[in-house]
Design a protein around this nucleic acid. Sequence first.
DNA 1: CAGGGAGGTGCAAACGTTTGCGAGATTGTT
DNA 2: AACAATCTCGCAAACGTTTGCACCTCCCTG
Lengths: 329, 329
Amino acid sequence: MENITLKKISEVLGLSISTVSRALKNHPDISAETKKRVSELADTLDYEPNINAINLRSKKNRVLALIVPSISGFFYDSFISAVEEECRNNAYTLMILQSGNSSEMETNNLRICRQNRISGLFACLSTETTSMEAFDKFKEADIPLVFFDKVPDGKSYNKICIADEHAAKLAAELLLEKNKKKILALFGNKILSITRTRYPAFQKIISLQKEVITYTEHCNSSDEAKKITNHYFSKKEKPDAVFCMSDEILIGAMKSLNELKIIIPGQTSVIALSDGFLPKIYTPEITFIETSGYKLGKLAFTRMLNCLNGMTEPTEMFTASPLVKGGSL
Amino acid sequence: MENITLKKISEVLGLSISTVSRALKNHPDISAETKKRVSELADTLDYEPNINAINLRSKKNRVLALIVPSISGFFYDSFISAVEEECRNNAYTLMILQSGNSSEMETNNLRICRQNRISGLFACLSTETTSMEAFDKFKEADIPLVFFDKVPDGKSYNKICIADEHAAKLAAELLLEKNKKKILALFGNKILSITRTRYPAFQKIISLQKEVITYTEHCNSSDEAKKITNHYFSKKEKPDAVFCMSDEILIGAMKSLNELKIIIPGQTSVIALSDGFLPKIYTPEITFIETSGYKLGKLAFTRMLNCLNGMTEPTEMFTASPLVKGGSL
DNA sequence: CAGGGAGGTGCAAACGTTTGCGAGATTGTT
DNA sequence: AACAATCTCGCAAACGTTTGCACCTCCCTG
């Protein structure tokens, strides 16, 4: 099975290459008779146009790239899933690259993107990233750049985020509403943009109630979250609620609470910000504010599409974060 | 920032395109002096060769495709993660496509692959797939095809699998060793190749002990697994062990056991075949036979590399499935 | 019959790269 | 002085596609 080209078809049919090309594109110059002959032969030969040639000629391609710390995770896999779905439906090819949260791999990935002359880039910053220089090159080249989740500061970038502020506020309000007085609040690494948004929003609401005590902690992993939770629940005065900023933290906190046989929601309540998969694993199911990677992916793609169509003004967009009630609060 | 080409560089330096091309490839024909001038300019201009042109000329490309039912999942995300890692390290580009377990999308994805003139394909069959015709076209075109997880029957394909048989046997042996007498054995859909391997292997071992009773059930989702578990544990004579063929099933079974407040491992034991993430969520951690997507991905990639280098004899390979002890057995 | 439109098709260039071949220049050998 | 060897480099073709332009053949109209 050789590769079928326009040339082959044209030779068989005794036509010129250009006629065949036009016939397949339903060009008005070509007679219906010819079109029929051409497309029938193309079908039987399983002709597929060579994308490389097309891209080369058009100086464009329909390839989008996506850089993410890790494909497998609590959140990114569903984000990617959504983006891939849209790409496929819009005849874009998706190139996924992992940065492993290393800025070296990140710049390397950006090089790969440039090599491939991608048409657009979805990017989640690695935690190590300090300089935006490499990213700015894409902007200069008019290649749409859509950041998601971990986004850079400043007004000059497209950013698609969870409504972090709203979600954190909502969680805080719920805790107050339920009359919680001693709250263990677990956040992620302070460097992360999501932490820098979620943390103050949460605190602002909580601090409205003077008599509420919050133990605020930052943790970098599930294990750290577990240790911290262990610490607070080994005291005699235990918190009456735990707030978890992310799935990763939720895992650690729940591990601790379960091991200590703390009854939920009897002895303490739990509320989390989550993609939604994990909370349903536990019994009772954890009440959470949904921070859906899937929705975020869909939104990021529509923004990308707009950029590709010329709407290049940098925009910050948010997905809604509904409350999903479990039995943990 | 225009796109830099060999032509531009050659014009600036007053050289021919071919000289520039050779200089950058360290061709012996070119003087050290010229090479230096060329590569310095290329560096400052951020020259990146146009992959489309290269591919067109060489009639090859370094693109591998991967078709998977869904990116987000208990297993595939880590498989993909491994494959992406290797692709990046070997300068291959990875194109990921989801089939959503629909054979229509699957054939559509295969068309995309052909269009892109991919060099190799990793594929996990959708549950709907009945005909291998579309896949066979790749074989005819000498495009390496490596199946993983859900693989077709027959000796004529490359297949990379979990050592399903061994894993299922191991689980069964452990259950017997621990003197379990009434085992609820939960398997997935009978159509799946993994079920067709795991099921008989498990049964064969268990049936060696005549006095052991097994309740074998097949379920298509976590929810079904939960319902079935509920059913068996609502009886007065409850099973003293539960075997879960996959993570998906484990979730359902555990949900049921936790809701019924069955104490593990006091009242019943649990053992699963799992990627390894979920078992560690629970308390006590679930004892499992590791069926690592990550390892499988690494193995699939080495097989792919061998195929690309001419070792085309179809081969079936397995990853090891070690036992990871938790506290549930 | 001349002229003109329309309908159908082909020519050739361009996209950016690689590479076989050959040409000019320099040096060394006899 | 003639010639060979070596070192540097450029020409041109090829990969498969698209597209502006020109060409040819009919047929119609005046």
